[in-house]
Simulated scan of single mutants.
Amino acid sequence: MSGLVDDRVVIVTGAGRGIGRAHALAFAAEGAKVVVNDIGAGLDGSATGESPAEQVVAEIVAAGGEAVVNGDDVADWAGAQNLIKAALDHFGRLDVLVNNAGFLRDRMLVGMSEQEWDAVVRVHLKGHFATLRHAAAYWRGEAKAGRSVDARIINTSSGAGLQGSIGQGNYAAAKAGIAELTIQAAAELKNYGVTVNAIAPAARTRMTIGAGGAMAEAMAAPEDGFDAMAPENVSPLVVWLGSIESKDVTGRVFEVEGGKITVAEGWRHGPTQDKGARWEPKEIGPVVAGLLAKAETPVPVYGA
C-alpha cells in the first residue's frame, strides 16, 4: 500500500459491518490509526448484543495496524462527545471523522409512525451532526491555540437523499439533510483547517439486501468478474478524501458505485423570469410553464 494516510487518526462510525467496515480496513491498510465505532445494532437499530467492531479491530491488529473499539451511540450528545474523546485519549489527536452509521425503518409515508420517522432521522442526521459538532470544537480549539490543523470530515448521504426513494421517506429526508449539512459545515469550518465532503455510495450491505425485490437482485454478487456492488469499492475515495492530498476539495458530494465516481450537482439557480413588479396570480401559469420548459428534467425518484 502507498501509506496515503500514514499516522493519521481516523474515526469511522458504524464500522462493524458493510461499508463502514471496508472504510476502517482501508484506512488501516494505508497507515492510519483507526477508532472503530459500532454499537452492534440490527438492521432496524435494535440491540443485538454482538460486537462486530471487535472483529474489525482484531483484523486490523493482525495485519500490523493500530485500532481501538468504541461502542458509543453517535446520536447521543454525550456519546458523540465521548467518541471524539476516545480518539484523543488513545492516539493523542484526531485528523479524520467518517460519519457512516445508520439503519432503516422503511415504510410508505402514509403508513409511517412518528417513532419510525424520529428513529431514522435521529441516527442519520443527528448522528452526523453530533459527532461533527464535537470534532469541530476540538479542531477549532487547536486552530485558536496556534496549532496546525489539516482535518477532514467525510459524511455519508445516499442516492435516496439526492433523488428520493419510494418507501424510504424518513431515510431520504435524513440523507438529503446530510448533503446540505456537508455544504454548510464546509463553509463554516474552512477557516479552522477542516474540509467537509460527502459520499452517496451504492454498494451491497445489510440495508440494500434487506430492501428486497429488484434492488436486492441488482445488489447480488456476480458469480465471476468485477463485483461492482462490493462495499470495498467505495472506500478508496473515502481514504483519499481523508488524506492531506484532498486539502483543496470541500463542500462536495460524490456518488460512488463500483469503479465510477460522479460529482453530484445539487440545487442551483435555474431559469428565471423577472417582471420587475409583483405578479398577479392569473399571470403565473404561463410563466411557470415557460420556466419548466427551459429547466432540466429532474432525476426520477428511486422506485417510482
Results as ranks from 00 to 15, higher is better:
Asp227Val: 08
Ala214Trp: 14
Gly225Lys: 06
Asp224Tyr: 15
Asp224Val: 15
Met207Pro: 01
Arg206Cys: 05
Glu232Asp: 13
Ala214Val: 14
Ser235Glu: 03
Met219Asn: 14
Gly213Asp: 12
Pro201Asn: 01
Glu217Trp: 13
Met219Arg: 08
Leu237Phe: 07
Ala214Thr: 14
Gly213Phe: 12
Ala211Val: 08
Glu223Phe: 09
Ala200Ile: 04
Met215Leu: 15
Ile209His: 04
Asn233Ile: 06
Gly213Lys: 09
Asp224Glu: 14
Gly212Phe: 04
Gly213Gln: 14
Val238Glu: 03
Ala202Thr: 07
Val238Asp: 04
Met207Thr: 02
Pro236Trp: 01
Val234Thr: 00
Met207Lys: 01
Arg204His: 05
Pro201Lys: 00
Leu237Gln: 02
Gly210Arg: 03
Ala228Gln: 13
Thr208Arg: 00
Gly225Val: 08
Arg204Ile: 01
Met215Asn: 13
Pro222Ile: 11
Ala214Leu: 15
Val238Gln: 04
Met215Phe: 09
Val238Trp: 02
Glu217Gln: 12
Ala221Tyr: 10
Met229Gln: 12
Met215Cys: 11
Thr208Leu: 02
Ala200His: 00
Ala230Glu: 13
Arg204Gly: 01
Ala214Arg: 10
Ala200Ser: 03
Gly225Trp: 05
Pro201Ala: 01
Pro236Met: 06
Asn233Leu: 07
Ala203Arg: 00
Thr205Cys: 02
Ala203Val: 00
Phe226Val: 08
Arg206Val: 02
Asp224Arg: 15
Gly225Tyr: 10
Gly225Asp: 12
Asn233Ser: 13
Ile209Met: 13
Asp227Met: 12
Ala218His: 10
Ala228Gly: 14
Glu232Ile: 06
Ala214His: 09
Asp224Met: 15
Ala230Cys: 14
Pro231His: 05
Ala228Ser: 15
Pro201Met: 03
Met215Asp: 09
Gly225His: 07
Gly225Phe: 09
Ser235Asn: 03
Gly213Ala: 11
Met207Phe: 03
Leu237Thr: 06
Gly210Gln: 06
Ala214Gly: 08
Glu223Pro: 08
Ala203Pro: 02
Ala220Trp: 02
Met229Ser: 14
Met229Thr: 07
Pro222Ala: 13
Val238Asn: 05
Gly210Cys: 05
Asn233Met: 06
Pro222Tyr: 12
Ala211Asp: 05
Ser235Arg: 01
Gly210Val: 05
Pro222Lys: 12
Pro231Met: 10
Phe226Ala: 06
Asn233Trp: 07
Ala203Leu: 01
Met219Cys: 13
Phe226Leu: 09
Pro236Val: 00
Val238Lys: 04
